[in-house]
């Protein structure tokens, strides 16, 4: 048998014997006094705690100033710059944190323990304006439209809209005209590799001999004349190449006849997915892995995609050697390098 105390009033039947459809809101619960409200000693203690917290903040600020001057310049000893910076960062930061947290916790503790915590209630009014105001607003707009005469003068309406719609062209034209540089998107299709350009080490720029490249090694390559370009970084963003030597018997296919030299192959380093450098060479599987989205290319098989979100193989750079034994390009890539774009095959 469940032991009830008295039934709550929601269960008392109505005068006609029926129960209400839904329960009714019982109204505000009783207010609980805090310890600080009942006991003056507890109240005093809370006040002292708030004072202490604000004092912590002041101490923190003073400590910040002391640390700032006492710690001095971390660059005085370059060999210890890392630990000196770390010390400065730690002390300035900790003292700052205390200066702030002292104020924050002090204010909150004050509000929680000492300020009047009786819950109060405020009425909500409907958000919408009353019917009268809405009428008046509507009338005001209508009167305004009447006075302007715009409803009768259709041509004026069209003209004002037309003029307003057109004038942004005065800003947009020079902005858009200049913002895209020379707008020559055709440059995306070519790189600075030409017939005879020597392959050089990145970043030093020293040319590479075929005999330098051993089986299992990978060289990161730039055109030898990269620094002479007008915009070296822009050119580098298209021209970087990976040079890998495989055992010629392991090469299953390549993108063009005679494009490799004695097992040395050169492929574009720019991923055909969204353009990260495909830099990870796994020697044993001869796969190139891009660290950004894990597109994987098989160097021994025309660098075609074996996993990941890329679709196209890495473009191959046709190479050979010049009469001094240095590796040179036979020509530019035979297709645009890097990520796909709408007109890349045109």
């Amino acid at each position: 048998m469940s032991t009830h105390d008295t039934h709550s009033h929601e269960l008392e039947p109505h005068g006609d014997g029926t129960l209400p459809d839904r329960f009714e809101n019982p109204g505000h619960p009783e207010h609980h006094q805090r310890l600080g409200d009942l006991d003056p000693k507890a109240n005093k203690k809370a006040e002292r705690q708030v004072l202490a917290l604000f004092t912590v903040s002041v101490v923190g600020t003073i400590a910040f100033a002391v640390a700032y001057f006492a710690l001095g310049d971390p660059t005085t000893d370059p060999t210890k710059i890392a630990s000196a910076t770390r010390t400065e960062n730690l002390w300035l930061g900790l003292t700052l944190a205390f200066a702030l947290l002292g104020i924050g916790t002090g204010a909150v503790h004050w509000a929680k323990t000492l300020m009047n915590d009786h819950e109060m209630s405020e009425e909500r009014h409907a958000i919408a304006s009353d019917a009268e105001s809405r009428e008046a607003a509507l009338q005001a707009l209508q009167d305004g439209a009447e006075d302007s005469g715009i409803s009768r003068r259709g041509a004026l309406k069209g003209a004002v809209i037309g003029a307003l719609a057109l004038f942004p062209i005065t800003i947009a034209l020079p902005l858009i005209g200049n913002i895209g540089g020379d707008w020559n998107v055709g440059k995306l299709k070519h790189t600075m590799w030409k017939k005879g350009t020597r392959l050089a080490r990145d970043p030093s720029g020293r040319a590479i001999k075929a005999s330098d490249v051993t089986i299992g090694s990978v060289f990161h390559v730039i055109p030898e004349n990269l620094e002479e370009a007008e915009h070296p970084l822009d050119e580098k963003a298209k021209a970087v190449v990976l040079l890998i030597r495989l055992d010629p018997r392991d090469i299953k296919s390549e993108q063009g006849e005679g494009w490799s030299y004695d097992g040395i192959v050169a492929y574009s380093k720019i991923c055909t997915h969204v353009g990260c450098p495909v830099a990870l060479y796994e020697q044993q599987t001869h796969h190139l892995l891009c660290p950004c989205h894990q597109s994987t290319f098989d160097v021994a098989d025309s660098a075609k995609v074996v996993f990941g979100p890329a679709k196209r193989a890495l473009p191959q750079l046709p190479i050979t050697i010049d009469d001094e034994g240095y590796l040179i390009a036979q020509s530019d890539f035979h297709e645009p390098v890097g990520p796909s774009f709408w007109e890349r095959k045109k």
Partner: peptide
């Protein structure tokens, strides 16, 4: 007060 707490916690992390 909460503003100072938030700023303070972030300062703690930065430190």
């Amino acid at each position: 007060g909460f503003f100072f707490v938030v700023f303070g916690v972030i300062a703690l992390m930065g430190a």
